[in-house]
Design a protein around this nucleic acid. Structure first.
Length: 232
DNA sequence: CCATTAAAGGATT
DNA sequence: AATCCTTTAATGG
């Protein structure tokens, strides 16, 4: 538990915009602050949801276990996003597991604070529910992609999404700035790590990407967009 | 076209 | 040294 939580940590984040300074201070006073080491679980699927979370720094992988024991990665969470908001969905349990993709800094609040937060801060309410809606539509689009697109397109989409979400510009192009294995990509796209590996190798020789162990650089995003859209 | 299986080499701890 | 990650090839749906 950190002691000096400054209002500036959250003041400019979308959900908290227009929440008054006093209210922010009070909110921070009630927040738990945690450092989560890479690969540690923040919460697990099926666990009773007692808190909701805000990611201050790092990246979180959301992992869903299917009844068959297969795992699927519907999304990654970036710094500044709320997550684990089962309370907003009316769920008693977390619907997925949250894993630190790299070292993370996380704030958490007990669910008991949620109703007041929503009631007293209309902007917080509308922003978070808009965000929930957007995530839902993303998931729906992903389902559609799974059903209609070829593996090559899905993998291209996934990498583009990661690059746009978390990309960092370098001399070579856009680097995905947390470790992503071929298996992680295959879990996002419903294919196998071997296929992802083969595709990345092919794209690398073609010059669209550069990749190493758990690391991918987008050197020609434009080409990948074309592949994602099914145009060769 | 894509999944599965198998094998092997490099990287990481 | 043991384990993890990636690549490559062969096979079969």
């Amino acid at each position: 538990m950190l002691h000096k939580l400054d209002v500036s940590l959250i003041r400019d984040l979308p959900p908290f915009r227009d929440v008054k300074e006093n209210a922010l201070r009070e909110l921070l006073a009630q927040a738990g602050s945690h450092h989560i080491p890479k690969d540690a679980n923040i919460f697990s699927q099926g666990q009773t949801a007692e808190e909701f979370f805000l990611l201050l720094d790092g990246h979180v992988r959301v992992v869903k276990l299917t009844p068959q024991g297969e795992q699927f990665v519907p999304r990654y969470i970036s710094a500044g996003e709320l997550f684990g908001i089962a309370i907003a969905l009316g769920l008693e349990e977390y619907p997925a597991t949250a894993v630190a993709a790299r070292d993370c800094v996380v704030l958490s609040w007990p669910n008991s604070l949620w109703p007041d937060l929503v009631a007293n801060h209309p902007t917080f309410a509308s922003n978070t529910y808009a965000m929930v809606g957007q995530r839902l539509s993303e998931t729906q689009q992903q389902l559609a992609e799974l059903a209609t697109e070829h593996v090559e397109q899905r993998v291209a989409h996934a990498i583009l999404k990661l690059a746009n979400q978390t990309g960092k510009k370098t001399e070579d192009g856009i680097v995905i700035d947390f470790p992503v294995s071929r298996e992680d990509i295959s879990d996002m796209t419903g294919t196998t790590l071997h296929t992802v590996s083969r595709l990345l190798s092919a794209w690398e020789t073609a010059g669209w990407v550069k990749s190493g162990r758990k690391q991918i650089t987008l050197t020609d995003g434009h080409r990948l967009v074309m592949i994602a859209n099914g145009k060769k």
